[in-house]
Design a protein around this nucleic acid. Structure first.
Lengths: 149, 149
DNA sequence: ATAGGTGCAAATTCTTTGCTATTAA
DNA sequence: TTAATAGCAAAGAATTTGCACCTAT
């Protein structure tokens, strides 16, 4: 099992080029707002809400509207370039690192932590196959309380 | 691996008494609307939305308001007598069988199917312990496309 | 040139809440 | 009797959308 590590940063940096490339290849115009939003997503090591992405984007161009952020994130989600989460059953949060299928949510603080696990991954693929499904995506959320000591 | 089976029905029937008992023990008044909502939840083999629960409840008493359904489901959720899902990132859906931690969602139809898997369960408990968390709940969603043949 | 994108504000959708009347315990 | 609950309608919060103007290609 591998807990979130620094290596992820490199992975994310590599992703931006991939993100922009895929957007362009998909026929999307590379506009100012869009470029900024992609950059914000690349730099996000967390799971920002739409409003958070908007706030961060406005630091680069204060005229960017939240409607554009919503529209852009929906497009990226449709293209599977971003993963949407609803950790708190309240509003959407996004992540760009698509390797993060597993999350632990601290029920006390709401803090979200990623982890990976190869055995789990193997089980999931085996199960999907057994059920007759071609796996498109999967999410595992552990809700727990941090133990002291 | 065990796919959802008829045995679940017996489990759910047993749950209602448990549900009502727990509600009463928690000091909740057992009112008409509440009793009906609990019955609807017991009889639900699916994952109904608030609106669906409301519609079903209205077949027993057309005067039941959706506000009461929202309030009741929130109480049950707080008491962990029901599990809230957001399969479609749009509105909440609920299930009363708390053994159903695993769901496969057909990306084409939205159909939701439960499954169980002991190996997976063991992995999850191991991981929570390794991360230093006391496991409160967990959810696994597989999003896939049904294979033909 | 033009299809696609943007900002703004209004509209939608889901959910919560204030209030008054009602009711289980 | 009385604290909890219900229904109703209004308020909130998150998200989407119509429209007129703008811009990457």
């Amino acid at each position: 099992m591998v807990i979130q590590a620094g290596a992820i940063q490199a992975g994310q940096a590599a992703m931006l080029a991939d993100l922009e490339r895929r957007c362009i290849d998909a026929g999307l115009k590379m506009t100012g707002p869009r470029r900024i939003i992609l950059q914000v997503l690349r730099e996000a090591g967390d799971h920002p809400s739409v409003e958070t992405v908007h706030q961060r984007a406005k630091e680069f161009d204060s005229s960017i509207s939240i409607a554009t952020v919503y529209r852009t994130l929906n497009i990226l989600d449709d293209m599977n370039l971003v993963r949407r989460h609803e950790f708190n059953d309240n509003y959407a949060r996004f992540e760009t690192n698509l390797d993060h299928h597993y999350h632990v949510i601290d029920v006390a603080t709401g803090e979200v932590q990623e982890f990976q696990d190869r055995k789990l991954e193997a089980s999931i693929e085996r199960i999907a196959a057994a059920l007759g499904y071609e796996l498109v995506d999967y999410k595992l959320e552990l809700h727990g309380r941090k133990k002291t000591g």
